[in-house]
Design a protein around this nucleic acid. Structure first.
Lengths: 188, 188
DNA sequence: CCCAAGATAAACAGATCGGTATACATTAAG
DNA sequence: CTTAATGTATACCGATCTGTTTATCTTGGG
């Protein structure tokens, strides 16, 4: 058993390629070339390209939320500070040179049907992020943690779109200023 | 010259197909079949599929903004009411059964490179919508019309994402409640 | 050493991709 | 009527798509 399994190699490269070039536009031949595995190996691990897309989205969700939680808790020393720190974390993300929007928004764009498994996973990712925010809002003593979380989540989504479509790297700062208003309203 | 030109037929069908199934996933063969034209005719009017995509996005921008402006001005009898009516217009859009998110967010997802012509058109569309909002904010007497417009625009983007990815049809209502806070702050 | 598991490269299949070419039909203007 | 433009259908091109097959190589455990 190698340190990095073939399966992980494949998912790792698929992550980069799907994110940068899109799901439909990225062929399996490109993925196996970059991952340096044979086509047989890919189809040993995944029944189809669709299955690989799902596995890739699940991995992305894991990596993204782990990073979001780690960085948010590192930058914010109180629940209130953490709610604001969320915007600093996504702001840093916008400035990464590989930033290509939110992979789950992108997936929903390509797999528009709400019943599509990739679309469902994308919705689930958004739900989990929102749930994480709700937990912090609750700790912060918000009058209505669920509502505050949904407000903050909506501001983050808007900032992501502005950053990606319009290239507005300061979108997170505006969203943060807006969030502050709702946080102040919700905390006493 | 027919009442509806061949070119318009092609763009009209391309609009539906690109919007529902995505740009890369929709082949020109599918478009010509639906538009009931020959492939030669398509390539007489458009040099390439890429050119057709651009023409389709330009048409979508025209239709979308015309509808947004018409409905906003119909539903709101004052600049302040119009700023709020924006959210009613997009709320109705979310509830259309053909709703598949924002075509320009979708385009940016598939054509992630900021230099891609389709991406550039998408950014331009967002800029024009924001400019329209700024005009209303200005009429309303906002202290900083540009900032208010960008705030409202960000809320709209967030609502679109929530509506499409998570299927949250009431996203526009939350965004509207949030917008009210900033409108009240900006109009002394 | 031996063997099975899992890897490899490469050919192949059948469909579809964007785009071109050919040959014929329709149509409207001079 | 004639002609030029524009339409049609269809065949074709080479490339690429997802997925399968074949035949060979590597490797670790008993």
């Amino acid at each position: 058993m190698p340190a990095i399994s073939k399966r992980e190699q494949i998912v790792s490269e698929a992550l980069k390629l799907f994110y940068q070039f899109g799901f439909t536009a990225t062929g399996v031949d490109k993925i196996i070339t970059e991952a340096k595995v044979s086509k047989k190996t890919l189809y040993n691990h995944f029944k189809s390209k669709d299955e690989l897309v799902l596995a890739t989205l699940r991995k992305r969700d894991e990596l993204f939320r782990n990073n979001l939680m780690r960085e948010t808790e590192r930058l914010g020393d109180s629940p209130r500070a953490q709610l604001l720190a969320l915007f600093d974390v996504v702001g840093d993300w916008f400035n990464e040179k590989t930033f290509s929007g939110c992979m789950f928004i992108n997936a929903a764009a390509e797999f528009s049907d709400a019943d599509n498994p990739s679309h469902i996973i994308s919705a689930e990712h958004k739900r989990l992020v929102c749930e994480y925010i709700r937990g912090i809002a609750s700790e912060a003593g918000a009058s209505n943690p669920d509502e505050l979380a949904k407000q903050i989540n909506l501001l983050i989504e808007g900032a992501i779109v502005d950053a990606h479509v319009c290239g507005n790297k300061s979108a997170a700062e505006r969203a943060k200023r807006m969030a502050k208003v709702f946080i102040d309203l919700a905390l006493d």
